[in-house]
C-alpha cells in the first residue's frame, strides 16, 4: 500500500509537471499531423490514410516517449531532485516504473491521436483493436525504456537529445516504414531485426493493412524481450552509475 502511494504520487506529479503542460499536449497533436502531411507530400504514389496509420502511430510513440523521458530524467538529475526519489524507501524497480509510466501513457495517447483524425477521413472497420492496443502499449513500453536507457547513459539534457537521435533515425529508416524490409539491402536486413520498432510496426501493418511479414505472436514476444532487456540494463546502469 505504501509503495503504491509513492508510485501513484510520482506518476501524478510527472503528469502534472511534464506531460499535461500545453507545449507537450500541442506536440501530441501537431506531431502526427506533420508526419501525415509529410507522408502524403513525399509519396510518389497515391496513399490511403489507412496505409499511413502504422507509420504515423509508431513514430508518434517513438518520438514522444523518448524525447520526454530522456529529457525529464536528465533534467531532474541535474537539479538533484532525482536524489530525493533515490533516497525514498521504495525499490529502484518501482521507482523507475513510476517514472516511466507517465511516458508510456503519453506515448499511447499520442498513438491514438492519428487514429482519431483518421476515423473522420476513412473507414476503420474490420480492425482487431485489441491487437492494435496491445502493440501500441508494447511499442510505448519499449520506446520509453529506450528513453530510460538513454537518460541513464548521459548527464546533460542536450546529450540526451543527441543520443536519442542516434537511435531514433536508424530505426526510422530501417524498421520497414519507408522501405519494406524485403527491399532493404541484404547487409542492412539483420540490423532491422535487432530494432524493436520493426516488430511494432509490423504488427500494426498486419492488423491495419494486412501487409506485415512477421508472425504477430513472434513480434509480441520480441517486443516483450526488448522491454525486459532495456529496463533491466537501465536499472543495472542506475545502480552502477548513480549510486556510486
Amino acid at each position: 500500500m505504501k509503495a503504491w502511494i509513492a508510485f501513484s504520487s510520482i506518476l501524478m506529479k510527472d503528469m502534472r509537471s511534464y506531460y499535461l503542460k500545453p507545449p507537450n499536449i500541442s506536440w501530441g497533436l501537431i506531431f502526427p499531423i506533420a508526419w501525415t502531411l509529410m507522408f502524403f507530400l513525399r509519396s510518389p504514389v497515391q496513399l490511403e490514410v489507412r496505409d499511413l496509420l502504422p507509420g504515423v502511430m509508431a513514430l508518434s510513440i517513438l518520438f514522444g516517449t523518448t524525447s520526454m523521458l530522456a529529457v525529464t530524467i536528465t533534467f531532474e538529475r541535474r537539479s538533484r531532485s532525482f536524489e530525493r526519489l533515490l533516497l525514498a524507501p521504495i525499490s529502484l524497480n518501482l521507482l523507475m516504473l513510476a517514472k516511466t509510466t507517465g511516458a508510456i501513457m503519453f506515448g499511447i495517447i499520442n498513438a491514438f491521436v492519428p487514429v482519431l483524425f483518421a476515423s473522420f477521413m476513412t473507414d476503420l472497420s474490420g480492425i482487431n483493436w485489441f491487437i492494435v492496443l496491445g502493440s501500441v502499449i508494447l511499442i510505448a513500453i519499449t520506446s520509453t525504456f529506450l528513453g530510460l536507457f538513454i537518460a541513464v547513459s548521459v548527464s546533460q539534457v542536450f546529450e540526451a537529445q543527441t543520443f536519442s537521435n542516434f537511435f531514433r533515425f536508424p530505426m526510422l529508416f530501417l524498421c520497414g516504414l519507408f522501405i519494406p524490409l524485403a527491399n532493404l539491402p541484404a547487409f542492412l536486413r539483420p540490423l532491422s531485426y535487432v530494432l524493436p520498432l520493426t516488430y511494432g510496426v509490423d504488427i500494426l501493418k498486419t492488423v491495419l493493412n494486412n501487409n506485415g511479414i512477421i508472425p504477430i505472436p513472434f513480434s509480441f514476444l520480441m517486443l516483450i524481450a526488448f522491454s525486459v532487456f532495456l529496463f533491466a540494463y537501465s536499472i543495472y546502469n542506475v545502480n552502477r552509475k548513480w549510486i556510486l
Binding site: S9, K13, R80, S81, R84, L85, P89
Partner: peptide
C-alpha cells in the same frame, strides 16, 4: 542535502505532500 533539491515548479505545500507520499 547541502543544496535544496525540491521541485521548482511545485508549491511549498505540494512539495511537502509529495515528499510525504514518497514515504507512503
Amino acid at each position: 542535502p547541502d543544496e535544496s533539491n525540491l521541485y521548482e515548479e511545485l508549491s511549498g505545500l505540494e512539495n511537502l505532500t509529495f515528499c510525504g507520499a514518497l514515504y507512503g
